[in-house]
Amino acid sequence: MWEVFAVKYAENTGRRRRNHFIVQDDLHDTPHPIFYYVWAARRGNQAVVFDTGFARDLAASRGATYERTPAEALAAIGIDAASVRDVVITHFHYDHAGGIGAFPNARFHVQDAEMAYATGRCMLHAHLRKPFLCEDVTALVRALYDGRLVFYDGDAEPWPGIRLLRIGGHSAGLMSARIETEDGPVVLASDAAHFWETLAGEPFPIVYDMRAVLEGYQRLIRAAGGDANRVVPGHDPAVIRRYPSAGPGLAGVAARISGAAT
């Protein structure tokens, strides 16, 4: 079985509900912070990392407070980024695919559809390319030419107990992951569900395929055995509070994900 962790590296407390939900309501202008995480699954000496975050120099332009690099966040739970062999890039948006250079010995696991999307004609449209950074996509193309990319076309189980789920919707090749732990399955949604509220049908404004987004919520919950509390949203501040700390001194930095959130 795997141990699963969420590690926080940045936050933006200046965001409002109107920034995060398409459907506006009477609360649309109330504060709605967003936290930035990377995730890891560990079994013995093996670690699989999910996403690589964004670089410190982007924080100011994005209105974010940068607390630590993703590599530093992983080090807090005993994972050395330079030694990691496998990194899943759930999608190529700037806050998930930046800084792959911190993982010099890793292979990067991606979807065919995401590479085609990020390097194809859709990027002619400013609205669609806004969440991407050319340098991040270019770094992944370089990794491809170095033989360090592993491609999937749909769902896959690269490691026993970790199943990658192609959800799409928010981005063309977005992946989530169903991971077996001692306390049952947990599902790392990444941006298939930004917040627990999202699972109730409140879509995030950045959308590639709305049907895939909405059906993705149902699929995430099914993958979690019907329990939405076993789905770990990609950006919800409550993740770091609702799961126990990963160790002494790590409150607010790293949470141990197992079973359902309290």
Rank of each mutant, 00 (worst) to 15 (best):
A10Y: 03
R129T: 00
P205K: 05
A40N: 03
D57Y: 14
V110M: 15
V38T: 13
F35K: 10
K8T: 02
R62G: 00
K8S: 13
R56K: 15
H93D: 15
G247W: 05
R163H: 07
G216L: 06
P185Q: 09
L250D: 06
Y145M: 15
A255Q: 11
P248L: 05
Y36D: 05
L144D: 14
G173L: 13
T90P: 13
D153Q: 08
G249V: 00
N229F: 12
R241T: 10
I257A: 05
G99D: 03
D86V: 06
G154Y: 06
V88F: 07
H93Y: 14
V239C: 07
E215K: 01
F54I: 01
G168T: 07
W2E: 11
Y9F: 15
A6H: 03
R16I: 14
P248E: 09
Y94M: 14
R85W: 06
D112W: 10
Y208A: 13
T52R: 10
D227T: 01
D86W: 11
D136E: 11
V84A: 01
V7S: 11
A97R: 06
A228Y: 10
H96D: 13
S245F: 04
D29V: 02
A60M: 12
P205Y: 10
D29K: 12
R148Q: 09
L199Y: 07
T30L: 15
G98R: 08
R148E: 05
R242H: 12
H28Q: 15
R142L: 10
N19F: 00
E135W: 11
A81M: 07
Y217W: 08
H96N: 14
D153F: 04
A73M: 02
G78H: 06
S245G: 04
Y36N: 07
D236L: 07
E157S: 12
A76W: 06
A189Q: 09
D155P: 02
R222Y: 03
M123L: 11
A223H: 04
L124Y: 14
R15P: 05
A64Q: 06
V4K: 08
D25Y: 06
E3N: 14
D95Y: 11
V253A: 12
E182M: 11
